[in-house]
Simulated scan of single mutants.
Amino acid sequence: MKTWPDHRIQKLLGIDLPILLAPMAGPGSAALAIAVAEAGGLGSLPCAMLNAEQIRSEVTLIRQRTKRPINLNFFCHKPPRIDTEQEIKWRKRLEPYYLELGIDPKAPVPVSNRTPFDSTLCDLVVELKPEVVSFHFGLPNKELLARVKATGAKVLSSATTVDEARWLEQNGCDAIIAQGVEAGGHRGLFLSTDISTQVGTMALVPQVVDAVTVPVVAAGGIADARGIAAAFALGAAAVQIGTAYLFCPEANVAPAHREALRNARETSTVLTNIFTGRPARSIINRLIREVGPLSDVAPAFPLAGGALMPLRAKSEAQGSGDFMALWSGQAAHLGRELPAGELTRLLAEEVLAKLSAYE
């Protein structure tokens, strides 16, 4: 086979390859987005941890180095209510680690913030006019979404269930990312908070494909040509890949995180809420073993991360990943340490060769 079995995503987004870079807040970078875009995939810039000026600066850099379509990704969570009692409990739970690392447990801690999509960020989208805008945790309100779509941007969002996929289509999504439970980082769930019923990619994708009419992008546990070919067999029009790109030199990955990825196996990750207050898949480390993986003491998303910042800073300086979120999907062991552009092109070549072998 010399061509792809489904071209809907390429036509919709204006890209050459049905490979989307997952917008990973933290590890994601302009360099990573540029490399994937130049190779023919969709480059993505995670914006949830950036302010407006930082986003503008990153997009300017991207535009200077590629004319290919890019995706700006935003979170759509509700701003949390500060619960002083919960914060005190969380600080108390972490106090032994503060003392162990020689940090004053009563010192003020930074605020962990991930900004939800609002009118200010919408103004920025109108100004920057990205070809694609994607969301996590649902969609923004109708007025903001209408402004985004009026720019001509195609809108994507993540669904972790069939009900979420139907809701996204009904509310204006041009394509849906079906996020299986194998995926690294935050679960995109927004209609339910029950992670015990989350669905794997193999079961989720075909059911979402049957439930909606827009193209479906498979995500979760896809790291090589076999996974991409399987996604097409399930009815997906494209794949979104995250963890495999964490091995690339362009990714902003701390040395301790990179080492954990190199040593990860299929049983090395777990869903945990202790790093941000919301379920996300991370490689198991000391903090998860001793405090999590799921804690009812952790404050609401994203506030749980504030009290962890001093612990991470002190331990990371010592080469330790004990207190950092080691985001990873379940297929990290399949990762290859290649430049992102080379990895994108190689994946495409390997998939087409594999699909040809099936003919």
Rank of each mutant, 00 (worst) to 15 (best):
M1R: 14
H7P: 00
H7E: 13
H7G: 08
R8C: 08
I9G: 02
Q10Y: 06
I15K: 02
P23K: 03
A35M: 07
V36I: 13
G40Y: 03
P46I: 02
S57H: 15
R65F: 13
T66M: 06
P69M: 09
K78F: 01
Y97P: 01
L99S: 09
E100G: 02
G102F: 02
G102W: 07
I103E: 10
A107L: 12
N113F: 10
T115V: 15
S119L: 12
C122W: 06
E131R: 10
V133K: 00
K142D: 15
V148K: 05
G152W: 11
V155Q: 02
S158Q: 08
A159C: 13
R166I: 15
G184D: 04
L189E: 10
S192M: 05
Q198K: 00
V217L: 10
A218R: 00
G221V: 00
A225L: 03
A231P: 09
F232H: 05
V239W: 07
G242D: 08
C248V: 02
C248P: 05
P255G: 11
R262Q: 15
E266P: 00
E266L: 10
V270S: 05
L271G: 00
P279T: 11
I284V: 15
G292T: 05
P293Y: 07
G305Y: 04
M309D: 07
A325S: 14
W327K: 00
L338H: 07
L347Q: 00
A357V: 05
Y358Q: 15
